[in-house]
């Protein structure tokens, strides 16, 4: 029996919700004022885009021969003592410090301009997106094959898939990341170094760890999705002469996909959050980038809140995409 509330009670508790939220925020602000934390929200944007001054320096001794400006940029040409010419580009908006016929020596600043660079948080977020995307794609592929293998008639395929799922689901992700990283760097990288001549960067061990982890869960999601489709569908497809693979591809998978999508979305949202663990193997993803930013700025409160907000944006975007896909599949 569901709890019944009167209209008045509902209004009261709706108000209570906002009061509780505001009280929590207010309490937090009050607490920070007690410890005289000084807020520096203004530093946060500099961790998204930082600009720095680039100096254009002369590389030879001589005199400034000409300064030509076109719409896009200016070109400073210096004539050397020995008669050689060198020219330097300065983007428009740059500040010209040398004039024509000026004497210059190597190292003199001819001009300076401002350059925009992605900041630490921006770079970290790009790494998080990149790592998550790769891991999602590999995880889907692993999961589809795993799910099909889990219910295959072939015992080798079935048991391999089962072993994979149990191994991955039964151990902490953190430990798996360590295993991939340390076994990766000592074993695989040394073998690669010996026989092929290059090494795999740490980031890729992180991607593999996340992909293998996600693949195991996707395997179970795909398996239950396939099993939720009435067996009569397979029989109808096979009785028409379709192969096992064709019936999976044209009949079972398209129908299973609708049931697979919602739990899959949850899995991928977990994946984005779990990628924050990769900081421990020196992958500078969003969380690690935030920690680095904190050590240089002392704006720890602002940066960690920003970091959390960025994760929220990523996960929320993903769940919107999946909702869109679901709606599109529902109507077709």
């Amino acid at each position: 029996m569901e709890e019944q509330l009167t209209r008045k009670q509902i209004r009261f508790w709706s108000g209570a919700y906002f009061v509780i939220i505001l009280a929590m925020i207010g309490g937090f602000v009050l607490a920070t004022s007690q410890i005289t934390y000084s807020w520096h929200w203004s530093v946060v944007p500099t961790y998204f885009v930082a600009h720095e001054t680039v100096k254009v320096q002369a590389e030879l001794e001589g005199t400034v021969d000409s300064i030509q400006s076109s719409g896009e940029s200016s070109t400073i040409t210096v004539k050397g003592e020995d008669g050689t010419f060198e020219s330097y580009e300065v983007p428009s908006g740059g500040e010209l410090l040398a004039g024509e016929t000026d004497m210059v020596f190597p190292g003199d600043t001819l001009a300076s301009y401002q350059e925009w660079r992605p900041g630490l948080l921006m770079l970290g977020m790009m790494v998080t997106i990149k790592v998550s995307l790769y891991a999602i794609v590999i995880g889907i592929l692993l999961g589809i094959w795993g799910g099909i293998a889990r219910i295959s008639a072939n015992p080798a395929a079935r048991w391999l898939a089962y072993t994979y799922v149990e191994l991955i689901r039964g151990t902490p992700l953190l430990v798996q990341i360590f295993i991939w990283y340390y076994i990766g760097s000592t074993l695989i990288n040394q073998l690669f170094h010996k026989y092929i001549g290059f090494e795999i960067p740490a980031l890729w061990y992180g991607v593999i760890a996340l992909a293998m982890f996600t693949g195991a869960y996707v395997t179970e999601i795909v398996r239950s999705g396939i099993q939720s489709i009435n067996h009569g569908q397979t029989e109808a497809a096979r009785s028409l002469g379709m192969t096992h693979f064709q019936s999976l591809r044209y009949i079972i998978m398209p129908q299973a996909m609708r049931r697979i999508l919602p739990p899959l979305a949850g899995q991928f949202i977990s994946l984005i959050k779990d990628s924050s663990l990769l900081g421990i193997i020196a992958v500078r993803e969003l969380t690690k980038a935030t920690r680095e930013a904190v050590t240089t700025s002392f704006a720890s409160f602002e940066l960690f809140f920003t970091c959390a907000a960025l994760y929220l944006i990523l996960t929320f975007t993903l769940s919107l995409c999946v909702q869109y896909l679901e709606r599109r599949m529902g109507t077709s």
Partner: peptide, 12 residues
């Protein structure tokens, strides 16, 4: 060819 009691048409 086979025809089933429960039709088993492809609903999608």
């Amino acid at each position: 060819g086979m025809v089933f009691q429960s039709f088993n048409l492809f609903p999608h």
